[in-house]
Design a binder for these strands. Structure first.
Lengths: 137, 137
DNA sequence: TGTAAATATGAATATATGCTCATATATTCA
DNA sequence: TGAATATATGAGCATATATTCATATTTACA
């Protein structure tokens, strides 16, 4: 959901003495867009089907029907998701005959996936006594 | 012949010779849930408001109204998002008088944010000649 | 104690999104 | 060339989700 209406509640609204004083030039430091780009990347990665696709092609390139088989989903559904991953430049593709092979674009993605799983693994024991816990957003 | 069966795409459907042979035990290796947990984490991070909140509290803890001021959004909207971040155990909170201070829970998040921005930064020049490009999912 | 401030939360709503279905395109091979 | 295969894509639908609004809760302070 793209950032909606920038409601302008004035700074003066908050009178709590605990508020940090220095009014920074902008909300986010590195130019704004960089942080938003990061959020976009996370959003693309934030879907189970897409992470499963990425995991499936993490070791070696695979064609669409191969991925579809492995995930037990229709090639159409996979293709739709691959389009999103392509647009985000997360995967690359090369055509071989009738097939199209997809691979990870670079190592950043592998690193992000690994780090996120690491975080999840460390989080798991204390946080999820009853197993997987779907976080509602 | 009426129509091809509903659609449980069996492995045999794909006859392309390019498909990888070895039928791996499962779609994803590390137990399945770990990969899904990673996707969940990404999903929570994949929202501009939430990344802006995280960035705002990356250096030091801030109260809700402070964050709201900085993002120029209502405390209610911020509070809703903080709840999601809390449930995902991405932020911690401590109460001080009427205010509630939020901080990042651990360094993993900082690392993920930094890596994602790094990826975005490297991606940027060739991929986005016209500036920020919203990726439709 | 009573009022105001800071935060939290439930309901409602507009929008976004993932999948299915139908169909188009591209490529191989008989 | 024509049939079959692999992939891509647009429309439609059911669901998810981010914000607003109203209201509840907690705490400080006069």
């Amino acid at each position: 959901m793209p950032t909606p209406a920038p409601k302008p509640p004035s700074r003066a609204d908050c009178t709590c003495g605990t508020r940090s004083a220095a009014a920074e030039p902008a909300v986010d430091r590195p130019g704004g867009t960089l942080l938003e780009d990061a959020a976009d990347l996370f959003r693309v990665l934030g879907d189970t089907t897409r992470t499963r696709i990425l995991w499936a092609i993490a070791d070696e390139g695979r064609c669409v029907c191969d991925i579809a088989d492995r995930l037990a989903m229709t090639p159409s559904a996979i293709s739709h998701q691959l389009r999103i991953l392509k647009q985000a430049r997360i995967v690359r593709h090369r055509k071989v005959g009738r097939s199209v092979f997809y691979t990870l674009d670079d190592d950043h993605i592998r690193t992000l996936l690994r780090d996120a799983m690491e975080h999840a693994a460390e989080m798991a024991p204390p946080a999820r006594p009853g197993g997987r816990r779907r976080i509602r957003t």
